[in-house]
Amino acid sequence: MLDIHWAPWAPLQPLALGWLATAGIEVGVLRLDLVDTLISGNKWFKLAPHLAAAARQGARGLISLGGPHSNHLHALAAAGRRFSFPTVGLLRGEPRETPTVRDLRDFGMRLHWLGYGGYRARHQQGFWDAWRDRYADLHPVAEGGGGLAGAQGCRVLREMLLLQLRSLGWADYHGWWLAAGTGTTLAGLVLAEAGARPVHGALAVPASHGVAPRVRAILAEARVADAGYRLLDASRGGFARLDAELARFILASEREGGIPLDPVYTGKALLALREQVAQGGIPRGSRLVFVHTGGLQGRRAMAECLRELGARLTPIPRDRS
């Protein structure tokens, strides 16, 4: 039976970037990427309620699903390795090697490749029946740890923030800013804020991925008002799509601000914030909390492309000799 006791901590750090200073806006970054070397980002907070439910039900471990670069599966497999419980991953597509997949195997996760059609069936009624029969002692977790349970696990992020506000010299803050992949973390912050402050979600996926109705469904299940947040399109035309402008922005922001970003989530979210600032959408004097949701392990597969695209737009100094 699962018996896990762990209370991760994420530091709050100031983000020093010229365009923020010019606009008179302060941003503190809640560094979820630093909660652990392997169980990184927002994934643990979404997993924790599922682990608690599995323990109550007497399950031995967890089974979930995701893609070959999935941060969710990576965190789940790492947790299984750290706390000695079995994990099973149902993967999108055909068998392939990625840094993430290699880690999943090294962490002891048992993998099943579903193909693309088989993976699309994950939302159909009865999808889990065969897997429950095969792994009766494992607790199933939805893709990305989504749903109300995962959202409830993210409510603690507000408490973590409040304990550190004075470290930035802040008496208060005006809202949250974060990337949204499933909308679960955003929904958790909306629940935690209860309308006190807005939560801004920069969509890392196109609207067709259904984040908006998923957030509404979570809030409806929690029986709270569908308000207190807004979603902005930051997908740049597709999930995990990296273009030269985004690559250059990420590399420049890392050099100036000293905080690593990933191209799929946090890089897009910060670029969306800069665009909102440039358009006058964030009032001068605002203090925002930017949630670094992790995802840096997935950057490994995009590292070469990131360097190439970033270098393509880097100005070449003229020879003044």
Rank of each mutant, 00 (worst) to 15 (best):
G58D: 08
L111E: 05
G66Y: 04
V156G: 07
I316L: 10
W19Q: 15
L232I: 09
L261Y: 10
L65D: 03
T22W: 08
G126T: 03
L306T: 01
S167Q: 15
G93D: 10
L242E: 01
G117Y: 06
A244T: 15
R274V: 08
V190Q: 03
G310K: 02
P8G: 08
V199P: 00
I259C: 08
A16I: 11
F83C: 15
A130C: 06
G28D: 00
R248I: 11
G147C: 05
E256G: 13
E26G: 08
L203P: 13
Q276M: 07
A234L: 02
W128A: 10
G238L: 09
R214W: 14
L38Y: 07
G145W: 03
L138G: 13
A247T: 11
K43C: 06
H5Q: 14
D137K: 03
A130S: 14
P68N: 15
E308H: 05
D33T: 00
I316N: 06
D137C: 04
Q152Y: 03
A278G: 08
P315R: 04
H50A: 01
G285H: 07
P14Q: 09
R318G: 08
S253R: 02
A301S: 13
P263R: 02
A247S: 15
L15T: 07
L91C: 10
P206Q: 11
R214Q: 04
P8R: 05
R318L: 03
V264A: 02
K268I: 12
R134C: 06
W170N: 15
G146M: 11
P206H: 11
L306Y: 11
Y116I: 12
I250N: 07
P140N: 08
A192I: 04
L34K: 09
G118S: 10
R102S: 12
G169A: 09
A212M: 11
A180I: 09
I63F: 11
E304M: 08
A52C: 09
V156D: 12
R120G: 09
